[in-house]
Design a protein around this nucleic acid. Structure first.
Lengths: 207, 207
DNA sequence: CTCATGACCTACCGATCGGTAAGTGCATTG
DNA sequence: CAATGCACTTACCGATCGGTAGGTCATGAG
C-alpha cells in the first residue's frame, strides 16, 4: 500500500494522456466525452465516473501541463548560468516529440478560448509558471531591472514563435514538401536559436 | 442594375462579418448555426439558405480573409523599397483593430484544426499569399537567393510572434493588469519592431 | 463470510446539433 | 396582371451532445 502511485492514479494518468491528445488535436468543443472514452475502450459514463464532468476533465488536463512545465523548469535549476538555463527551457518547448507538441497546441487553444470565460477564471493555470520565467529572465545579465511588461513581451515573442511553428509546421510541410524532408524543420530550429540567443544577450531596450 | 454590389452581396457580407467574428472567438466547433443566425436576427434556416451548410460558410469566411490579406499586400506595391513594403505589411497584421485581430485568431485556429482534414484539402487558402510574402522577402537586399525553407522559417517566426501576441494579449493583460494600461501592448509593439527590422536587415544565415 | 468501496456498465434524459421539406411574402420582370 | 425568383419562414428530422440514475462485479478489510 505504500506505493507512490495507486492503480487508480495510473488509470487516471492513462485517461488524461488520451484526453490531452484529443483536446490538443480538436479543441474542447471539437471533442466529445464519447470520443475520449471510445478511444480508451470504455464507455462515456466510465469516463465521467473519474472526472465528474467534461470541464473538470479539461481542467485536469491543463493542470497537468502546468505541472509538467514547472517540473521541466525546475530541472534547469541545476544549470548555473541563468541564460543557458532559460535557453534550455525555451528551446525544449518543442523537442519534436508528439507529447510536447500537443502541450503547446493545447495551450494555444486555451489562450484563444478563454477570452470568453476569463472573467470567471479566478487564477490562471500558468500564472506562476510565467512568473518563474520572468524571474529567470531577470537573472540574465542586463535584464535585472527591466519592467515586467518588457520581460513578458520578450518572452511572449519567443514562446509565440515556437507555438506558432508547432501549430503551422504540418501544414507548411505539406504545402512546401517539394523541398527536402527536414529542411523546413531545420531552418526553423536555426532561426529560433538565433532569436533566443539575440533576445537574451541583447541589452534590453532602454526607455 | 449595374451597381458593383447587389443587395444580396451586401447581406452576404453582413452575414460573413458576424460569422467571422464568432468563428474567431469560439472556433468552428464552438459556434452553432443557431448562434450565428441568432446574432443576426434571422433563423438558422435563413442562414443556411445563403451558404448551404456550415462548412461552406466557414470556407467562405476563410476565403474572405485570404482576399483581404491579398488586397492589403497589393497595397504595399506602391512602396518602392521592398524591405519597407514587407515591414509595413507584417506590422499591419495587428493594427489593434478588432477586425484584424479576429482574422489572426481565426487563422491560428485554422492552422490547429486543419491537421486532421488536411489530406482532403486540395489547395490551401493561403498558399498564394505565403508565396507572395516569400517573393517580397527575396526582393530584400541579401535575401535574393535564400532557399524558400529559410525564407518561410523567418517569416513564420515573425507571423508567429504576432499571432501569439494577439491570442495571448487579453489574457496577459488581465493577469498583469497591475502595471500601466498600455504598457504590455507598447512593449510588444517595440519588441516586434526590433525583431522585424533585425530579421529583414540581417544577412540570411549561410549554409 | 460479510460488507463496503470503487470501477465500470446499461439505460435513459432533455437539449441541441446540422440539415431537409415545404411553404409565405415581396420585389422584379415580361 | 401574371409569373418568376429570391429571402426567409415554420415545422420537422435523426443523431449526438453532456449528464443522471441505478445496477453489476471484483477487490480488500474486518
Amino acid at each position: 500500500m505504500p506505493t507512490t502511485e495507486s492503480k487508480a492514479d495510473i488509470t487516471r494518468e492513462r485517461l488524461l494522456d488520451e484526453a490531452s491528445q484529443l483536446f490538443a488535436e480538436r479543441g474542447f468543443y471539437g471533442v466529445s466525452l464519447a470520443d475520449v472514452s471510445g478511444a480508451l475502450g470504455l464507455t462515456k459514463q466510465g469516463l465521467l465516473h473519474h472526472f465528474g464532468n467534461k470541464k473538470r476533465l479539461y481542467a485536469e488536463v491543463l493542470e497537468r501541463i502546468a505541472d509538467a512545465y514547472d517540473a521541466r523548469r525546475s530541472e534547469t535549476d541545476s544549470i548555473s548560468d541563468p541564460k543557458e538555463a532559460l535557453k534550455c527551457f525555451l528551446l525544449g518547448l518543442d523537442d519534436g516529440s508528439a507529447v510536447e507538441q500537443n502541450r503547446v497546441r493545447l495551450l494555444v487553444r486555451e489562450l484563444l478560448d478563454n477570452l470568453q470565460r476569463m472573467d470567471t477564471a479566478k487564477t490562471w493555470y500558468l500564472k506562476p509558471f510565467l512568473d518563474n520565467l520572468i524571474a529567470m529572465l531577470r537573472r540574465c545579465p542586463g535584464w535585472g531591472d527591466v519592467p515586467s511588461s518588457v520581460c513578458l513581451a520578450a518572452l511572449a515573442q519567443i514562446i509565440g514563435a515556437i507555438s506558432y511553428n508547432v501549430a503551422a509546421a504540418p501544414t507548411f510541410a505539406k504545402i512546401y514538401n517539394d523541398e527536402g524532408e527536414g529542411a523546413l524543420e531545420a531552418a526553423f530550429k536555426d532561426s529560433l536559436a538565433v532569436l533566443v540567443e539575440a533576445t537574451l544577450s541583447a541589452p534590453p531596450p532602454r526607455c
